[in-house]
């Protein structure tokens, strides 16, 4: 009995210490998360001056796509969209796609992936995703070269490249729809 008592005491003390550390780091974790996201936003939206509009996600094909539009004087300048690339080598890939008002890509950031360490991370390199910059739906085939498109796949990571490419294309399509409804109704915060 005494043994169980000691274990309980140790566990309680441990629990108390941890809740202390948790409270101490909770805010910082949030700040770090937000800072990381804001940095990604800045990379994909080089034209963003200070802020984006806070709007609900757009529905597209059974999915909810979070969107971060940039509006100046009531005119839509572009947006960042958080899209999911399906069929990655190891699950889905979360991609942040930046689109400007001409419906061309301004930047790409990989937010989350479970690909092979080292390989998947190459997709986060500008050396690779730079090829998407300035491309739009009408002039660029969003498919890897192996599938008859215009995208150079990462060596030995065709599946990852395919998934990211799909996500980027989806981002452009969703943006086109959003821009269409924006021009009709203006910015909606609902």
């Amino acid at each position: 009995m005494k043994n169980v008592f000691i274990l309980t005491i140790i566990s309680l003390v441990a629990g108390l210490c941890l809740s202390g550390v948790y409270i101490g780091t909770k805010d910082q974790i949030e700040i770090s998360k937000k800072a990381a996201f804001n940095n990604s936003l800045k990379v994909v939206l080089p034209f963003m001056k200070d802020k984006y509009e806070d709007v609900p996600p757009v529905k597209y094909d059974m999915e909810e796509v979070p969107i971060y539009p940039v509006v100046e004087n009531g005119v839509l300048q572009g947006a960042a969209l958080q899209v999911i690339g399906k069929n990655g080598y190891a699950g889905n890939i979360k991609v942040l796609v930046g689109v400007d008002k001409n419906q061309t890509i301004t930047g790409i950031q990989i937010l989350e992936h479970k690909e092979t360490p080292g390989l998947g991370t190459k997709s986060a390199d500008e050396a690779w995703w730079g090829q998407f910059k300035g491309k739009s739906l009408d002039k660029f085939k969003f498919k890897v070269k192996k599938d008859g498109g215009d995208v150079d796949a990462i060596t030995a990571a065709t599946i990852t490249s395919r998934s990211v490419t799909d996500a980027v294309q989806k981002g452009l399509v969703v943006y086109r729809e959003y821009a269409g409804s924006f021009n009709k109704m203006g910015v909606s915060h609902e």
Binding site: V21, Y22, T25, Q28, I29, S32, K33, A36
Partner: peptide, 9 residues
């Protein structure tokens, strides 16, 4: 917790 807070990457 500390790593999540100060070294998220």
């Amino acid at each position: 917790l500390v790593m999540a807070a100060y070294s998220p990457g």
